[in-house]
Amino acid sequence: MHSYIRTHATESALLLVILLISLFLSFATENFFTLGNAFDLLNTSSVNIIFAVGLLVVLIAGGIDISFAVAASVVQYVTAVMLGWIGGGNWLFGFLLAGTAGIVLGAFNAFLIHRFRIISIVATISTFNIYFGLLMFFTKGVSIYDLPDWLTTRVVLFEHEMANGTWVEITLPVLVMVVCVIATWLLITRTTTGRQLYAFGDNPEGARRFGIPIGAMQFIAFGWLGLMAGIAGLVQAHYAQEVVPNALYGRELDVLAAVVLGGARLGGGKGSVFGCVLGVLLVSITQNGLNLMGVSPFAFKMIVGAIILVAITLSNTSIEKLLPLARSEGKRP
């Protein structure tokens, strides 16, 4: 048990923090510690968790992408339009269409980064604006409400009647999220490609000397995030029962904060799926608790910004370097 805690320190710390925050919120609010709120948290967190496991692969490979939420919005809209053209479709065709479109957008990011040697954050800032600008230009901000019946019909996996007569339920997004989490876990822990992604993120030059194809690593990482973004976009359309062009705009920083909270290193070569999921849940629980307590949503944005700032600081300056600096500062007269 002690060895597990030592080797999974980040995940263990996150579990402890989640328990402490949940305990505090159960006393501070009336509705937090209820089955209905727990199910709502799980349903609403599903899309962000799908985003997060995709972003995790990019971070492991030493990259960073802030365009995935906007890419999901583009995929969402394109998929809805194409489904209208063909007269409906079904879930299988919808996932194939959305996943393929997402991979194409992710591969475009990888192409820019690999072909033109552009830093990933710069490339994805550019595509973030390109994707969002094109989406708003062609859609004029108009939402799509006329979606196929199969996409808007709620799929309930589990439901329970509360004492007050209301029903709480777990819906399809949770199942899709579980599949995406397991698929990502298998990719990064049970395949040669996953080991190569870790090696590439930890030491790109060393990975190149060992014969790991650099271009392939970038296309796999950003393509996987594109796939997850496409799936998340379709799931969001199902959950909201409409397609709003800017509905996912702004989620990228929340997801990034959650993933680095979960132990993913911005410098690459480190991160786990379990920590990633815990990071999203911690961010979701914090946001949910602040809402229930009536705290301004801007306070949550401050928390997200602080998380990213600390993560960037620690990724550039190790703890070992910080401690001697602190000791030398303390010795000064």
Rank of each mutant, 00 (worst) to 15 (best):
L42E: 05
G230T: 11
F210C: 06
E252G: 15
D65L: 11
G269R: 04
L96W: 00
L56I: 08
T313G: 07
A69M: 03
A264Y: 02
L59F: 03
V17M: 11
G294A: 09
Y249C: 01
L290P: 02
K270V: 00
K331Y: 13
V81E: 13
G279L: 04
P245S: 05
V58P: 04
T191G: 04
N203H: 13
L135F: 10
V181Q: 02
I49R: 04
V259H: 02
L261D: 04
S45C: 06
I182H: 07
V53D: 02
Y239M: 11
R195I: 14
A237N: 11
I125C: 04
A240C: 00
T127G: 01
T139F: 08
I212P: 03
V179P: 05
D254R: 07
I113L: 08
V277W: 09
R190N: 12
L253P: 09
S328T: 13
S126V: 15
I49E: 00
S12E: 06
T166V: 10
L23R: 03
A221T: 06
L292A: 06
L175C: 10
V70A: 04
T286D: 12
L322Q: 07
D40P: 09
N43K: 11
T124D: 05
Y145E: 07
L112K: 02
I214T: 15
W91N: 07
G230P: 01
P204F: 07
L325P: 05
A258Y: 03
N129D: 13
V259N: 06
G165T: 11
L227C: 08
R117T: 03
P333L: 15
L175W: 12
E30C: 03
L282M: 07
V273M: 01
G106I: 02
W224R: 01
I285H: 09
W150F: 15
G294M: 05
V168I: 12
